[in-house]
Write a protein that binds this DNA or RNA. Structure first.
Lengths: 241, 241
DNA sequence: GGAGTGAGTGAACAACTGTTCACCACAGTA
DNA sequence: TACTGTGGTGAACAGTTGTTCACTCACTCC
């Protein structure tokens, strides 16, 4: 371990051979990568590396050195971008919810086109999870995170997400006379189902993909149950019997 | 740090002053603590210490040295009781679900006595969480644990718990004609609500206890919604209209 | 009484951690 | 052209970690 490469070679200035291969430094003049591009490049590499590691660790067990190693960068570089792991975690929360909003957008478009609203919504969710496994796993796992700031951020954003969903629900004939509070309750139940489905689907994907249709059918059934429940529900706990 | 106490004192043979104060070693003859008692004592201390630490760490960030330190025992002692942290985690899962079964027992008794079944059930849950915060937090947080074996164990036991609940539900007039699969679905939705409530209540307890009644009311409302849904639900996806 | 068992000890190990530091190379500006 | 700001480096730091080891000594059983 104390053998070190002969000093003469000067180590190529990139002894951390990793995801950020030190900008191609193309030709001398035109193809310059401006400073800000370099910066956001390693920043991305750090975020991506962290997300990859979080596949089988939890955030409060994520080491700065691990992350920089995954990003192919020296440990000290981390501090040029984030103050701490918690800080990085908060950025991941933001990004994850950005893709969640993408989900909602897709769902809105798709649901109008589909003949079965339930099937359509679940299908959109499933393909979205397939496309962004990291973000969905992150939210599902860190929802109850041991890292306080991240836990709170996720809860806040989930609530926000639910209220957005509630305003969408308000357009449906069955429930458009409900008071907001009841709509939000229903929306939160649906969001809870969504998160739970994410985590179950991700486990199914990597442990027994043949059971995916079964899971999808089950999710549809639950969602159907939740929405059918609206038929029997008397808003605000039985006003006018 | 390299000052060490004068060798003469022989360190009292208990240099880890902790929760297991080395059995009181009462009088010489009658009050002997048999070997097996000693053993299960430190085992308990390890489990309790671990559970205490898990209040603000996650299992996959729990160190053996931390646990032994919390238990007041030398690091090496850990291996006399558990092969690894994962192993200890599985024992915690078992114990946590033992208290969960206690919850169900209490609920059964209480629900028959209460005039409002919903209010009664939620009340039992709430006092149970107050009495066993560690176990409920553990299940809620490690439900999506990064430690595979623990995650699987919790999922299995939650499913089992839901099927038990389903057989209880089967006695209710509204749903007693439902096929098992539908009952289990409802039970799983209820269990999910339970777990979610645990985690939210625990956060409320230590961050703003004055908001507990609000949370309780909200939980009752959700539970009511879930069960009322049964009125509108046509089992097995609309057989006979 | 004497031997054997086994829970607990403390020291040691190499490996790893977070954080700081002086330094370097270079893009952007003057 | 030379100057400056800054993203990235590698070395160093003091701690902490998991695991193994020979060991002690109270208990149990013969």
């Amino acid at each position: 371990m104390n053998e070190r490469p002969p000093e003469g070679i000067v180590a190529e200035r990139g002894a951390y051979p990793g995801a950020v291969p030190r900008p191609p430094r193309s030709s001398s003049s035109a193809g310059r990568t401006p400073r800000t591009v370099d910066k956001s490049r390693t920043r991305r590499a750090l975020l991506d590396g962290a997300l990859a590691l979080l596949e089988d660790r939890s955030l409060d067990n994520l080491g700065i050195r691990e992350v920089t190693r995954a990003a192919g960068v020296a440990p000290a570089a981390f501090y040029r971008h984030f103050a701490s792991i918690d800080d990085l975690g908060l950025v991941l929360v933001e990004e994850a919810f950005a893709t969640l909003r993408g989900l909602m957008r897709d769902a809105r478009d798709d649901v109008n086109a589909a003949d079965d609203m339930i099937k359509g919504s679940v299908a959109v969710l499933v393909t979205h999870i397939h496309d962004n496994p990291g973000h969905y796993r992150f939210i599902a796992r860190e929802q109850y995170s041991a890292v306080l700031s991240v836990r709170l951020a996720i809860r806040r954003d989930l609530r926000l997400f639910a209220t957005e969903l509630a305003t969408d629900l308000a357009r449906l004939p069955l429930v458009n006379t409900w008071p907001t509070a009841d709509l939000v309750m229903l929306a939160e139940l649906i969001v809870g189902l969504m998160v739970d489905t994410s985590k179950r689907l991700l486990d199914v994907i990597e442990e027994g993909p043949e059971r995916e249709p079964e899971l999808v059918a089950d999710t549809e059934r639950r969602l159907r149950y939740l929405t059918f429940g609206a038929t029997a529900w008397k808003p605000r706990g039985n006003r006018r019997t």
